[in-house]
Design a protein around this nucleic acid. Structure first.
Lengths: 253, 253
DNA sequence: CTTACAGCCTCACGTAACGTTAGAGTCAAC
DNA sequence: GTTGACTCTAACGTTACGTGAGGCTGTAAG
């Protein structure tokens, strides 16, 4: 009893092309070939095909399946254990993806407006938040009401798209500063980057006057939460930024 | 200010080839090209690249990303919803695969095949049942009819395979909580797991609002049948879960 | 000015597992 | 003998780049 491609295909629920492919790569060769060149399979090949499909279903590649089926000595259990870990990792990633998608949907719906922390890996948004919460009153007293005016209003209106842009820009500026760290805080490129940082704040959050900017530099070092956030980019960046920002402000006078 | 390929690549953490590729397919074209043919990017392109990477991370194809980014009118929410379903399906398949691998490993070991029914026998099913029977009326009165709507309908349609998957997932979540028990209920991993627990309920049974979830936490401790079932996994887990669930809900406000 | 050397460019093939024509031969029935 | 179902090989298409090959550009050093 022999079967032709289509019969095998229907029995096993795969396409004819798949059988051709398995033949090509030597994974499942027909028992014989008719004079006309037709592939002829027997029950044995059907059995092997079952095995192939099983391993495929649990995620092995055709190459791996070949290894497993062609080597009776192959350590199937070890392969399965290794493979399970891979699958677990994939699932973890999938779940993270699902969570992120959920959050994004929520933020679009405006239900839970996706906290800043979530928005961009807790980074600089939290810095701004801290600044707002902790020093708002002080700043207001010191520099006038205008300082924090509208920050909330402005930031709350930003879309996810906006945040992504803003944070990308911030990352870029930090990268630029880091690139010049070895040259010290007075380095022209560093100073340029610091200028961009101030412009970035002014453009996106509040009017960052030289006085405020100077104070913000201090804050980066004095408030450990700021320091931690900033130093995530590079060890010592916070302290370095403080110096550079002071130099920058002094040069403005 | 313009950037050449390598600069952009380093800032964004992608390969130069990737940028070439994005250019080829029209996903991210440089702002301009120098006389020598060098690609020159600006901040705008960096921002767009951020967007691209975000969508890529949550599993969209480059083609889909192009659609999304090039059509401001594009229904992002719908795209995300559709996409989430895809992800859910993938996850389901992965879980089935993992279960199958596990069974295969067990059968190789020749040990007791230990059916999943055995493993999870009467566990969370009973919890859900209890919840349903005992608090249905109360919940209905408190949170509106919608709360328990369709639970019966949904659960009755689940196959044995479905239950196995669902319960496997529940086990995983509990294991995650237990892993962080020593760090207290506010531990990030615990909180993450609790979030997954809520998502798990919402996905498989009913829309688990924060209010319901909060109440469910209490239930775990107040109803001895729940407590017994949960503490089977680990002594004191029920009480710990209650705390963690309350913390979780409080943080949502 | 020449030499290096890093960085840029454009092809263009390779990857995984088939899907999909396209052109052509084969087999059983009518 | 003709139709219609089935078979074959060949080869390009798909996804998101990786990986050279071969060659031009820009700049610092000798």
């Amino acid at each position: 009893m022999s079967y032709k491609v289509k019969e095998v295909a229907e029995i096993a629920g795969v396409s004819v092309r798949t059988l051709h492919h398995y033949d090509e790569i030597g994974l499942l060769t027909p028992k014989s070939v008719s004079r006309a060149g037709y592939r002829l399979y027997t029950e044995y090949e059907l059995g092997r095909l079952q095995h192939i499909l099983f391993f495929k279903e649990i995620g092995f590649s055709l190459d791996e399946i070949k290894q497993i089926l062609d080597n009776p000595d192959f350590d199937q259990k070890q392969a399965l254990l290794t493979h399970r870990e891979l699958l677990e990792q994939k699932r973890q990633r999938l779940e993270t993806m699902i969570q992120t998608v959920n959050k994004t949907i929520e933020s679009i719906e405006g239900g839970t407006p996706m906290s800043h922390k979530e928005k961009f890996d807790g980074f600089d948004m939290s810095a701004i938040e801290e600044y707002k919460n902790k020093y708002e009153a002080e700043a207001r007293a010191k520099y006038g009401d205008s300082t924090m005016d509208g920050v909330n209003k402005r930031t709350s209106g930003y879309s996810k798209q906006d945040w992504s842009n803003i944070m990308g820009e911030n990352e870029r500026i930090y990268a630029k500063v880091i690139a010049g760290m070895d040259n010290g805080p007075t380095d022209p490129m560093v100073q340029e980057a610091v200028g961009e940082l101030r412009a970035w704040i002014t453009n996106n959050f509040y009017d960052c006057t030289p006085e405020i900017f100077y104070g913000l530099g201090d804050l980066y070092v004095m408030d450990e939460r700021f320091t931690a956030n900033i130093d995530k980019h590079k060890e010592g960046l916070a302290a370095f930024l403080r110096e550079a920002m002071h130099v920058y402000c002094d040069n403005l006078k």
